[in-house]
Design a binder for these strands. Sequence first.
DNA 1: TCCCATTTGTTCGACTTTGAACGTTTCAGT
DNA 2: ACTGAAACGTTCAAAGTCGAACAAATGGGA
Lengths: 377, 377
Amino acid sequence: MSNDSNQKGGGKSLFALQRRELLMDELRAHGAITVRDIAAKLGVSELTIRRDVNSLADGGLVSRVHGGATLRSPLDRTAVAGKPPAYSYAIGMVVPSLDYYWPQVISGAREEAEGQNLRIMVRGSAYDASDNRRQVQALLDTQNIDGLIVAPDMAGAPGRELLRWLNALPIPVVLAERRTPSDIPAHRLEWVATDHAFGAGMAVRHLWQEGHRAIGCLTDTSSPTSPHVVRGWQQAMAALNIPPENQFYGESAKLDNGERAQHFDDVLKRCQETGTTALLVHSDTQAVAFVQHCVDKGIEVPGDMAIVGYDDEVAYLAEPAISAVKPPKRYVGKVAVQLMAARLAEGRMRPVHRIQLNPELILRESSVGAQRTTHEP
Amino acid sequence: MSNDSNQKGGGKSLFALQRRELLMDELRAHGAITVRDIAAKLGVSELTIRRDVNSLADGGLVSRVHGGATLRSPLDRTAVAGKPPAYSYAIGMVVPSLDYYWPQVISGAREEAEGQNLRIMVRGSAYDASDNRRQVQALLDTQNIDGLIVAPDMAGAPGRELLRWLNALPIPVVLAERRTPSDIPAHRLEWVATDHAFGAGMAVRHLWQEGHRAIGCLTDTSSPTSPHVVRGWQQAMAALNIPPENQFYGESAKLDNGERAQHFDDVLKRCQETGTTALLVHSDTQAVAFVQHCVDKGIEVPGDMAIVGYDDEVAYLAEPAISAVKPPKRYVGKVAVQLMAARLAEGRMRPVHRIQLNPELILRESSVGAQRTTHEP
DNA sequence: TCCCATTTGTTCGACTTTGAACGTTTCAGT
DNA sequence: ACTGAAACGTTCAAAGTCGAACAAATGGGA
């Protein structure tokens, strides 16, 4: 009867809300507050703070104690047993593509958000730091978001500057499929990312077990993922003691059809020179085009050339179907939301989490040879 | 661990709820408490603690015993109906020490397990792969465990062999404060570990901001943590462009008192030679001894030599109190249990998670110089 | 502009928490 | 079993917190 006020749309004095936010901040920072201190700090009467605390306690956000409040504690038996807080946060999400890869990440995030009673607002951006920033700013300005999940472009100086800016935002930020470089002290940024190096290594080991002894790597340098794939490929090659002269490495930028055919011919020629019989192709879109090209030229897949794609977006569409490393995209979104929810609930006391997820290797026809072996990477 | 020093004028007493949480922590860490100890530790009367214990016992959270309390045991028949403690899963936990560092990890794990309705069985082990394996085997044989959390010794060939063995176990395994090396394909092992390199870097940047330009590192090579601390120190030194001739690096194994004094004298001499005015000392136990040594020799801390310890177990006890990097120990335990619970619930579809947590830098007297600067790492 | 709903402040008796004193209970060692 | 020491809990008092009732201030809409 008395709680649950300001519903009618009457005087929505922002000040009360601000006070409560501040109170929650203080609480998250120190774990507990006294009514007296907060009242003194804000220059309002203690009764006002008590009323704030009670209102927050009714919402299940804090535990009322004699003299103040603490973060909600399991020992607090006062609250309604059934329903933990009916409070909801809004999370902004900025991703670099709404066509490729990211829809599944968003879908995972949405699914998790629904369960956690959170709202998610997604914006697409370009693969470009300044546009990332513009989109984030738009969310901050127009929506009232409590947290941000973002997959920024981190290349070069603008990328670093963007990271610094994100790190300094007043709301928690979680990076998706990005990691903070160790030389920039972005100590507040949390992240979830697929361990692409592990995925590439898994592919290499699979091809090794299929009998290949010269395994190449063809990547798309326009993608932020590419360096990790290359690193994983190199590490695995080194661990398997494959000499450098049996290592073919090629790069492709975005090409249109004519150039692409030419480029693929070059790749095949260099494979022949180095004796390469298997390729890890980053971005399975490209893998599909490459397999197509091979088939057109009469090169048998996997007989003459085994292929493993990276991303598993469209790999199953090719003929023959392409084996691919499949990042746990939905889980990336899901875990990002979990991180954000936990951060919003626990505040600063919670240590910064940085999470890697391992991808999975999906075996299809393009890499499984005559004598099929068990697929233990 | 927490505050025993007053910040400003007013008295700093804990709220009843906080006291009870602390009491439960202590209980989870050690299995039992005495009223007297807790009262002394918190500086309140024994009667107050007794009242707390009774209240918790009424809630069915602890078992009263003469002189203190224990975790609620099945033997305790005192009332409390309607609480069927049907555990879902049993988790084994093997840690290398029950004195240092690990009690807090266990406490965090127990706390989380309680909420998730899991049972945890802890075994102490030696810092030694073969004993690790023996303890795990004992758990597998005698208890019927569904999952395993373990902090194995990973050094050398026996360590790798142990990892392979763990990876092949039929139950899920989560490593605590350990990571899988990238060259061994332990693809099923999940882990939670503190990012000690980050912690060391944070300490170095703090000392740099305090005006130090030659920052040394003294580590205890017997600890598995040590390499990460050294790596973080090196990276930070490189990032700050501190030339190698201003870098002192020393190692200490376990020494008894006579040798230790000699060793510390050597360290101080080499610091003088290299112009080192600040040291990061791994294992704060050692830092305490070192500060003691400095004080005995008339070397001012932080005036002549600034010190930051690593681990924050006993750093606050020294005179002057030692600044220290504090790993989020209870969260390590907590997150390990979360990982395990999610794995047991979701099965193989869930991708392998590998989580790093960032430590925190606690500033005390031993590193904060004349002109105090803001502590932005 | 005024009006009315909402929010904030003041006062003061009721209530909580804590600790000292002191009699009772429990436990371990004769 | 007996006994002394420690632990326990009842009672009471001091200190401080809580919130009902009412008064004052605030601010958005007619």
